[in-house]
Every structure is written in structure tokens, then in C-alpha cells.
């Protein structure tokens, strides 16, 4: 008996829940002449709701111990491992070869584990005790930038996405990600993974939709502390820089290219979303001979 195929409706992920877009709009990306699914065409209101969710999750996430954050990242990797086949299938649907898809999923899991390891180590690497002439103990430590909006790479639907999310949340930030417009399947499945792992709701929010439509809102929202753009469209980059000026957002431009390369595994990806806090702590004396502490 023939049956009617069911096209999955992929919902967006905001504050740990899976709402449909408030706008009610959908689009149907295709690969190899086949419809991939019904994908939400998120509106600026969805983005706004995501910002509210991320902002309220920010305090709790950055206050978690570094070790605990590391455990949670590891947990995402574990769950991802368990659902490997679904991701491989979706990558193939989106046009990857089987071997290529398998490699991408493996690398994605490894990348999460790589950054899980860094959670309780990057502060040591990027902190310093600074020599000063007055009698102060002067030290600098990195602190999370806050709420980060991420425009995920267009070409690398899973690995690129994870390579952007992992260093962001490892550093205690929360994020709102706009997934690849033409290869969105893995992003929504990743959201399903996140909601069953231990990531608190609101720490990672995933939207799907039209990049061109949403970029101005990502860049102009006053409650977004940083924006990460992956790609090389000069006109988009310029418009982001202009709109980001109002609240002096940190804007980071990363190339949308080859995420297989191990240049995407380094702690500087964490430190680029950190702000340095320097403390001047008064002490009695300084100097090796009569140090006050």
C-alpha cells in the first residue's frame, strides 16, 4: 500500500521550548529537487523573544562553575553521539556524500568535547598578574561578553554551527543562532539534542529563516552584546558594522569556509567573546623581598 509521505515541520528553539514562528510563515528549502521540510521563517519578533529568553538565562549560565559548564558541553556531545544516524541522514538529504556526512558528524562531536575541555582552563591561560608601579596587586581576568547573536555559516550546516556555538557557551555567554538558510535541518535536530541534554533553557536559542531579513535586527538590537558573522558578503558586513554602532556591540567576522580544518579548534575562539576585567587591589608593600601577600 502506498502511503503519503509526511514532511516534517521543523520548529524553532527559544528559551528551551519549541514554538512555531509567531509570524506563521514557512519556507521549503530543496536539495536535489526534493523538499527538505517545512522550515520556520522567523520574524524579528521571534528574535526579540529569543533575546528576552537568552538575557534571563545569562546570569545563571555565567554563574555556573566552569567545571559544570564543561560537564554540560560533554553531555551535548554524548547525546549527539546517540543520534548520529539522524544527523548523517539529514546531511545526506542536504546534499552531502555518505562518507563526508559521517566525517562531519564525528568532527562535530569531537569539537564539542574539545571545547568542553577548555571550559575550566581558558581563564588560566587568558588571565594575568600585571606589574604596576604603585602598591597594588593588579590582575586581569576574562569575563563573558554576554548575549551573543550568531549568524551561522551558510555552507556547513552542522559542523559550522557547532563550531560557532561551542566556544561561545564554553565562555559563559548565551547565544541566539540563525541557522543556515538552505541547510537548516541539522540545526533544528541539534535543538532537539540540546533540549534533552542539560543545557538550561535560553542559553542556546536557534532560529531559522531569511538571513537578509534578520541581519538588520540582529545588528541593531540594543540588548545584544556581540555579533558573530560567518561569511564574506561585503555589503552585509558593512551594514552590520553600521547598525552595531548604537550600543557598541562587539562584531566578529569569521570566514564561512572550511570547518574541517583544525584552526577551528583553539581557545582564542573563546577569548574573542570575553571582556577583560582588571582589578587594582591595594596591598601594603610590593616587591619580591617584602611582598604583602
Amino acid at each position: 500500500m502506498s502511503r503519503i509521505e509526511i514532511v516534517k515541520t521543523y520548529k524553532i528553539y527559544i528559551g528551551g521550548k519549541f514554538p512555531r514562528t509567531e509570524s506563521g510563515r514557512y519556507y521549503q528549502p530543496e536539495a536535489n529537487g526534493k523538499v527538505l521540510g517545512n522550515i520556520c521563517l522567523s520574524s524579528r519578533k521571534d528574535f526579540r523573544n529569543a533575546v528576552v529568553a537568552a538575557r534571563s538565562a545569562q546570569g545563571g549560565w555565567s554563574a555556573k562553575s566552569a567545571y559544570n559548564r564543561s560537564q554540560i558541553l560533554y553531555r551535548i556531545a554524548e547525546i549527539l553521539e546517540g543520534r548520529k544516524n539522524q544527523f548523517i541522514e539529514e546531511l545526506i538529504q542536504q546534499g552531502s556524500k555518505k562518507a563526508q556526512a559521517e566525517k562531519e558528524v564525528d568532527l562535530s562531536i569531537d569539537r564539542l568535547i574539545y571545547f568542553a575541555g577548555w571550559c575550566d582552563k581558558y581563564t588560566q591561560i587568558f588571565s594575568s598578574v600585571n606589574p604596576v608601579a604603585s602598591s597594588h596587586f593588579n590582575f586581569s581576568v576574562p569575563e563573558p561578553t554576554g548575549l551573543v547573536a550568531i549568524l551561522a555559516p551558510e555552507e556547513s550546516g552542522l559542523l559550522g554551527l557547532i563550531s560557532q556555538i561551542a566556544p561561545t557557551i564554553a565562555g559563559g555567554n548565551t547565544c541566539i543562532v540563525l541557522a543556515s538558510e538552505n541547510k537548516p535541518l541539522c540545526s533544528v535536530t541539534l535543538a532537539e539534542v540540546l533540549s534533552t541534554s542539560d543545557v538550561p533553557g535560553g542559553v542556546i536559542n536557534i532560529l531559522t529563516g531569511n538571513r537578509k531579513e534578520l541581519i538588520p535586527h540582529f545588528a541593531a538590537h540594543m540588548d545584544v552584546n556581540a555579533l558573530v558573522y560567518s561569511g564574506d558578503n561585503a555589503a552585509e558586513i558593512k551594514s552590520i558594522h553600521e547598525a552595531a554602532v548604537d550600543n557598541l556591540k562587539r562584531v566578529i567576522i569569521r570566514d564561512g569556509g572550511n570547518y574541517v580544518s583544525d584552526k577551528h579548534e583553539n581557545p582564542y575562539l573563546i577569548s574573542s567573546l570575553q571582556e577583560t576585567k582588571t582589578t587594582w587591589h591595594p596591598i601594603e608593600k610590593i616587591g619580591a623581598a617584602g611582598s604583602g601577600y
Partner: peptide, 9 residues
């Protein structure tokens, strides 16, 4: 202003 605001301001 047309832009969503932040409590910071």
C-alpha cells in the same frame, strides 16, 4: 527609535 532596547540604558 525602531530598535529593541536594553535595560542597560
Amino acid at each position: 527609535s525602531g530598535n529593541y532596547q536594553s535595560k542597560d540604558y
